[in-house]
Amino acid sequence: MSSVKVECVVKASALIGEGPVWVESEQTLLFVDISGQKIHRWSPSTNQIESFETGETVGFVVPRRSGGYVAGVGRSIVAVDWSTQMMTSLVEVDEDKKNNRLNDGKVDPIGRLLAGTMGKEKRPAEVQRQQGSLFSVNSDLGVTKHLSQVDISNGMDWSLDQKTFFYIDSLSLTVDAFDYDSHSGHIGNRRVVYRLEEGEGLPDGMTGDADGRLWVACYNGGRVIHIDPVTGVRLQTISLPVMKTTSCCFGGPDYSDLYVTSASLGLDQSGKRQQPLSGGTFKVTGLGVKGRPSNSFSG
């Protein structure tokens, strides 16, 4: 068994850190601070962090094939030009639900963006129920709605053969799978592949590894769980020194480092004293597995 090491690499940089993604071409980690309304870019080689102010809540950021990034800001999918610190709106979703916001988003292997929304939060993880949806945005910026009545649209990934889409609606306490047609983007045949146990918290952000298994950050669970979506078995639990673990991705030169974001929003003074690293981003090494490169949006 390899010896797993957990290290806080970016100290308390986020109220709600989310959506980490490793950008191969830059050797940097992108992640967002939802409530802090910022996109962060961190370089492990220099330990420098740069920030981009979004002016509204930002749920995710992903690389874009034509350059720059695409992010979910408020209810808009926006293009981000880091060099000019400018954003340009590409499409808007949930026009009929002004209180909604985009949460997690990820790009499929052919370059299609999937992004989900959620209703207004009274406090972290307490939302207006069934207000959210799951959308896809293709290369010509056409938008398709796949799911409605979602509570908190969250973690997404795909099987190695691209025929299965994995998805989390956090308050359901499950990781679900759908049949996936990568040509059309159609999803169907929803089923549960893992149900979280008592004490594991809420399933939040998720990433897949090179073996086709899933890593799920558990909000209020202080852990990332490693599950086999074929057997539904939890293979491993990685404990972190913070309870509000939010999302994860693989990165580093050979994709063997697991980066995990966390949140501090919602902790009282006592909680912050007990968990001083809350809101930080962590690097987990020694897992003995590798991840896969992130996909870039083709639009």
Rank of each mutant, 00 (worst) to 15 (best):
179 D>E: 07
207 T>W: 11
181 D>L: 14
213 R>P: 12
181 D>E: 14
163 K>L: 02
201 G>M: 01
205 G>L: 09
183 H>Q: 15
171 L>Y: 11
211 D>H: 14
178 F>C: 02
161 D>H: 09
210 A>F: 08
211 D>Y: 15
183 H>S: 14
208 G>Y: 03
211 D>I: 08
166 F>P: 03
209 D>L: 10
179 D>I: 07
186 H>P: 06
196 L>C: 05
172 S>E: 11
206 M>T: 02
162 Q>F: 15
182 S>I: 13
175 V>M: 04
182 S>W: 12
166 F>W: 00
208 G>F: 08
182 S>N: 08
188 G>D: 11
197 E>T: 10
167 Y>T: 04
203 P>H: 01
164 T>H: 04
205 G>D: 13
176 D>E: 07
181 D>N: 13
174 T>S: 02
182 S>V: 10
200 E>Y: 01
164 T>K: 00
174 T>Y: 01
185 G>Y: 01
170 S>W: 07
200 E>Q: 14
163 K>F: 06
182 S>L: 13
212 G>N: 12
184 S>Y: 15
188 G>M: 12
166 F>Y: 11
204 D>P: 11
196 L>I: 00
177 A>I: 06
164 T>M: 14
185 G>T: 00
164 T>Q: 15
187 I>L: 02
192 V>W: 08
178 F>G: 04
204 D>R: 01
165 F>W: 05
191 R>G: 13
200 E>H: 05
203 P>W: 01
183 H>D: 14
209 D>Q: 13
193 V>C: 10
198 E>S: 05
204 D>N: 13
197 E>N: 09
189 N>C: 12
171 L>I: 09
175 V>I: 05
162 Q>M: 15
193 V>I: 12
204 D>E: 08
175 V>W: 03
212 G>L: 15
199 G>M: 06
163 K>M: 07
188 G>T: 13
199 G>Y: 00
186 H>V: 12
172 S>N: 00
210 A>C: 14
164 T>D: 02
201 G>A: 10
193 V>G: 03
175 V>H: 00
190 R>D: 08
189 N>F: 11
197 E>S: 10
203 P>Y: 09
178 F>K: 06
168 I>N: 00
192 V>L: 05
211 D>G: 11
194 Y>W: 12
199 G>F: 04
204 D>K: 07
203 P>K: 08
161 D>F: 07
164 T>E: 15
198 E>H: 06
203 P>D: 01
190 R>S: 00
201 G>L: 08
171 L>F: 10
201 G>V: 06
193 V>M: 07
210 A>Y: 09
167 Y>V: 02
169 D>R: 03
199 G>E: 05
197 E>Q: 11
211 D>E: 15
191 R>N: 13
186 H>Q: 13
176 D>Q: 03
207 T>E: 04
199 G>T: 07
168 I>T: 04
210 A>Q: 13
183 H>G: 11
169 D>L: 08
167 Y>R: 01
177 A>D: 06
173 L>I: 10
165 F>C: 03
190 R>M: 01
211 D>P: 13
184 S>L: 13
163 K>S: 09
192 V>S: 01
163 K>R: 10
182 S>F: 08
207 T>P: 06
163 K>V: 04
192 V>Y: 10
197 E>G: 10
168 I>W: 00
160 L>C: 12
160 L>S: 09
184 S>Q: 14
181 D>R: 10
189 N>K: 10
205 G>Y: 06
207 T>R: 07
187 I>V: 09
172 S>W: 09
189 N>E: 10
186 H>D: 01
